[in-house]
């Protein structure tokens, strides 16, 4: 029970790397990258968790035992960068589909 969050992180990284390496559909590769990104965010947040802590916000807080705020701030940055990178990858995939008529990463040919 103690390690269930770390177990989830390992499972997400494993599934994401499997999708990145073995899948040929570009959309599935993008999904794999997003899974690894989610694993990194979950790992960061779980590193900062303190036993019985509340969110580090003083407005009407129940008590002053608060979780660590720095990993949460870095996770916030990481999420927005993840959204931007995912949007860029998806637009590349759309351009690929328009150029070659397929999403298979091995079928595309460079035109001279």
């Amino acid at each position: 029970m103690m390690f269930i969050v770390y177990l989830t992180v390992v499972a997400l990284i494993g599934i994401g790397l499997y999708a990145i390496i073995f899948k040929r559909n570009l959309i599935k590769i993008v999904i794999g990258v997003s899974l690894v990104e989610c694993a990194a965010n979950l790992f960061l947040v779980s590193l900062g968790y303190k036993e019985g802590g509340v969110a580090p916000i003083f407005t009407m807080a129940p008590h002053e035992n608060m979780v660590l705020p720095t990993p949460q701030a870095l996770t916030l940055t990481s999420i927005v960068i993840g959204v931007a990178v995912t949007a860029l990858m998806l637009s590349f995939a759309m351009n690929y589909y328009k150029s070659y008529g397929t999403l298979d990463a091995t079928k595309g040919r460079l035109k001279g």
């Binding site: 103690m2 770390y6 779980s46 968790y49 303190k50 660590l68």
Partner: peptide, 10 residues
């Protein structure tokens, strides 16, 4: 994962 510190005690 097995040698990480337990969750809740940073």
């Amino acid at each position: 994962m097995t040698i990480m510190h337990p969750i809740g005690k940073p």
